[in-house]
């Protein structure tokens, strides 16, 4: 297991609003013997803003990081779904289009043709560590959590670059949670968009999308949503409006990172701190599920 070594790309959110995601990710990696080396002097991937307004920039920003990764040689591990998506698309395009590669090379002043793999942590958990090993690591089975998995857009689309087993009905996160003892509820809205990129600018639109997701999650019998993307989690937490809008949810519903669940199941020390830092407080649920005391 300790064979797993990666160049680690933390991504901006993990040192900002999604610190709990970054910290829990690093903690579970350490606990499972996944060796991470932080990409030196990494920069932002440009996220949807670069993608939506400047095509070459959207390739060149991740290109700078890919060039750095090329120098280290190891595969890259990413935890943020948006960073993962931008990084992979950028890599695919650079490797497939030599003209674009040269343009990017000129812009960043380094060779961006990184041929190693760009991996998402969920992919590594499910396909490298493996569900059997994860099950063995579980000290506190997460019974009492009735979760729906939320993949959002960037873990599954475009399917050509994504690792999930299906673009419309992925099960990677489902199976991951099942291994931890979570009761995974059948849910048809796993990959519906939450409108993250419009969260600040068109709050009205985003609230509809988000509250629809929560309504459907409540209908499915879930008491929490579990995700693998800081953009989704931030958006779902910020724009949740219990009791309002046409899609009405009745109670606040916690949104958790899959790494937090693993840390909890492995009884890693930081779990409580991370859970307490969520905008929608998951502690009442944790207490109710007898996973934590008050």
């Amino acid at each position: 297991m300790s064979e797993l070594r990666f160049t680690y790309y933390p991504g901006c959110s993990q040192s900002g609003s999604a610190e709990e995601y970054g910290d829990s990710s690093e903690a579970v990696c350490q606990a499972l013997g996944i060796e991470l080396t932080e990409l030196p002097d990494w920069s932002c991937c440009g996220a949807s803003s670069a993608h939506m307004t400047n095509d070459v920039l959207s390739v060149a920003l991740p290109g700078r990081d890919l060039a750095a990764a090329k120098r280290l040689g190891q595969d890259v591990l990413v935890v943020c779904a948006a960073c993962y998506s931008r990084m992979k698309i950028s890599q695919e395009r650079i490797l497939a289009d030599e003209e674009l590669a040269r343009e990017v090379e000129a812009a960043i002043g380094a060779d961006p043709r990184f041929a190693g793999k760009v991996r998402h942590l969920l992919d590594v958990m499910v396909n490298d560590i493996g569900l059997a090993t994860l099950k063995e690591e579980v000290l506190l089975p997460l019974e009492g959590l009735k979760a729906v998995p939320y993949y959002g857009c960037l873990l599954v689309r475009p399917p050509e670059v994504c690792f999930c087993d299906s673009v419309e009905n992925p099960t990677d996160l489902d199976r991951f949670m099942e291994a931890l003892g979570v009761e995974v509820m059948p849910w048809s809205f796993k990959t519906d968009c939450c409108g993250g990129s419009l969260s600040l600018s068109r709050t009205d639109v985003v609230e509809k999308l988000v509250n629809k997701l929560f309504t459907r999650a409540e209908e499915a019998g879930a008491n929490c949503i579990v995700a693998a993307c800081p953009m989704c989690v931030a958006n779902l937490e910020m724009r949740q409006r219990p009791g309002k809008l046409s899609f009405k949810i009745n109670h606040p519903m916690p949104v958790l990172y899959f790494t937090e669940l693993l840390a909890l199941a492995m009884t890693l020390p930081g779990a409580r701190k991370w859970l307490e830092s969520h905008i929608i407080d998951p502690m009442p649920l944790m207490v109710q599920a007898k996973l934590m005391s008050v």
Binding site: M185, P186, S188, A220, G221
Partner: peptide
């Protein structure tokens, strides 16, 4: 564009 099962009723949206 899609057919999605609604979990409580098993109707298809």
């Amino acid at each position: 564009s899609y057919a999605k099962e609604l979990q409580p009723t098993r109707n298809i949206l």
